[in-house]
Amino acid sequence: MIMEWALILLDILLKIAAILLPVILAVAYTTYAERKVIGYMQLRLGPNRVGPKGLFQPFADVIKLAMKEIVVPTGASRSLFILGPILFIGPSLAAWAVMPFDAELVLADIDAGLLFLLAMTSISVYGVIIAGWASNSKYAFLGSLRSASQIVSYELAMGFALVGVLMCSNSMNLGTIIEKQSGGIASWYFIPLFPMLVVYWISGVAETNRAPFDLAEGESEIVAGFHVEYAGMAFALFFLAEYANMILISCLTAVMFFGGWLSPFQGIPVLDNLTSWIPGTVWLLLKAGFFLFLFLWFRATFPRFRYDQVMRLGWKIFIPVTIVWIVVLAVWIKSPFWLWGAS
């Protein structure tokens, strides 16, 4: 009896580790990539001191952060202060459970995978709110209010954009969504759902509080937003969660609109045979990598939005665009001009 449970527990733990270790490593090297990419875009070299070409820089950063003291501010709610970063990173790691890496390679193949993802991203708001409130600091509180209202607003547009994916694929299972897109680049959903793709992607950038939507941090106005009072590993958790969310959004964009682990050469006579040995995971990672690069590119390119502009874009432009496109899509799917699989 106990042996049986121990085996179940061990099995679960091993599966979690098999997904989370690569994710955390990817997070570490995304921070490195960000500094290198933005460095080259600004005619600098970026980190190049620790290890060959600065490749060990992320480990140096982690060790530095781990050695620092976590200071709990006076008058702060101690338990909530600790809970904040945990609630922020927990959901962003839990969301990886439903991510399909290949045809058979998925931890939890659940029917409501899409909803699960939306639910997980909406929970991480609490990390922000709790961190801001528990810090007992005006800057942190204002930052958390800004960030939370931004996340809640853009979640709506994101949800509506995903309704389009639902309508095309007739399924909330991520694996099924990918399989419905098989048959070459032309049958990926980014063509019929192009407005949804744009809305989803920009909402994704806003949802992760990245530049140009990083006014939750707004160094020039509110110092550093909701995590201003955090130091050491507590801060590192916020930092890790932000990058884990970036990678997650990139992967999801690839899954929903760009055929996930499907090869782009499907259906092309010679190229298909030549590239058939490449595992699907590689294609997924390549597609996700492109979107991850876009995140960094945006940060080096665009200035920060003003707060009212962010709210206007979310409520007055994105939500109407998605609602109109859902209606258009409904008519299109039922018409004979629909080319992306029978519905």
Binding site: A112, L115, F116, L118, A119, S122, I123, V125, Y126, I129, W133, F141, L145, A148, S149, V152, E155
Partner: peptide
């Protein structure tokens, strides 16, 4: 999951705003 999405993700966030 809808309970999580609607009540935890949206309603309670706005509620917390007011309470805070």
């Amino acid at each position: 999951i809808t309970l999580m999405l609607v009540y935890v993700g949206a309603v309670m966030v706005l509620f917390l705003f007011v309470v805070m």
